[in-house]
Design a protein around this nucleic acid. Structure first.
Lengths: 212, 212
DNA sequence: TTAGATGGATAACGATGTCATAGCATGGCT
DNA sequence: AGCCATGCTATGACATCGTTATCCATCTAA
């Protein structure tokens, strides 16, 4: 194999071209996913919309599972970005903003949320690396939790554990809301209550809010 | 149409036979679902395993979505049954037992849980009646919550709302556990903590547990 | 006993994921 | 300059899926 040095200008532009192609294909797949739902995410349809043949999809992504994984990562990237933009004057406010950002992101990217937490694409199981990358939002949450502990708002427990509980609360409320299992309750009210409950559970006694 | 009176012995036995057939087909579909996952739930495969043709499945269930809906209802029936068996000396203990039963049922029926809350079967959307039936577990939860309110353990809020929050908490923790988003946390610990947090949130001040 | 109907088996149709083959361009060598 | 090797892509085929049209057996009703 006469392969040039990895950092040669030639290899660089070639890699850039491939990355651009990949980006374009993912964009059309993403548009398909968001506009017509996971059902319409078909190899042939992606190829037609992108203006190429299905072979390209297989050489670039290895198959439909590869595309699903790429979209999966993109969904978690969007989630991480949404969480990173959450701001507030103190750690607890920031944590609350992250919760609201989680819900807003899920509602604004329903199809992505489905790819991430439901499994609408048959035969797709995230790879270990993708799974590892998906824990980034949890780490962001844990960092803010740690700040809350340092600020004396939360008890000194394992921040990752607390973040996991908060994530489970957020995810549960959002998941039920997206699935439509409303019962008679207001989804937003349920969300706010559950998040407040989970946060209050870890607060130090003097910070603990009195029940409304 | 020469259809006999609805209550004739002929019609009765015929209906019984049809019900038995339907039960058998659902059992094979259920076995397939639990043993080989939702991917293997194929019209042809069900027909082969049951020893019949695919036509029967279409005349009896109308299509794959019909089978999915039947399994969906069965999943919620199992959940309702598990919740109904939860017992305890007082309402709060009963509520805690229901939470544990929910998790145990989900872990013991992962494939059913997937059918209920993920959407692994393309083109299946629960009908309004099936959706209505799926709210039974929520009602059972709300009943026990109402008992807790009467017992003075919970504040006097809308029992359905409280039940919804508890359900979201339970579902969130179980959902993350089944999806494998563990991070570094122990799933059972996370579950217990979140349920305790959600329950404590609604307790009257004098019943409120001090943080451990 | 026979006409009619009911329901299940067979096979076909369109669509899907996947892959083998072949065409084609590009780049390097003589 | 001409020719070959190499990698990429388009085409078409294959297996499988959900679904349905057609045909045939069986069974009831007269």
């Amino acid at each position: 194999m006469t392969r040039p040095a990895a950092s040669s200008p030639y290899a660089t532009t070639q890699a850039a071209g491939r990355a651009a192609l990949r980006r374009t294909l993912l964009d059309t797949a993403s548009a398909l996913l968001e506009r017509h739902g996971p059902e319409s995410l078909t190899m042939r349809r992606i190829a037609v919309d992108a203006g190429c043949s299905t072979s390209v999809l297989y050489t670039m992504f290895g198959g439909k599972a590869g595309i699903a994984e790429a979209l999966w990562r993109e969904g978690f990237d969007r989630l991480s970005g949404a969480l990173a933009q959450a701001a507030g004057p103190d750690p607890l406010e920031r944590l609350a903003a992250m919760g609201r950002a989680y819900r807003a992101n899920a509602l604004a990217n329903r199809s992505y949320y489905a790819v991430m937490f439901q499994r609408p694409i048959p035969g797709f199981e995230p790879s270990p690396e993708a799974y590892e990358a998906s824990l980034q939002p949890l780490r962001a949450l844990a960092d803010t939790v740690a700040e809350c502990i340092r600020a004396g708002v939360f008890r000194a427990e394992d921040p990752t554990h607390i973040a996991g509980v908060l994530w489970a609360a957020t995810h549960g409320a959002v998941s039920l809301e997206l699935a439509g299992y409303e019962g008679a309750v207001d989804a937003e009210h349920r969300f706010d209550d559950l998040i407040a409950a989970a946060a209050a559970w870890f607060m130090t006694p003097d910070r603990h809010p009195s029940a409304p």
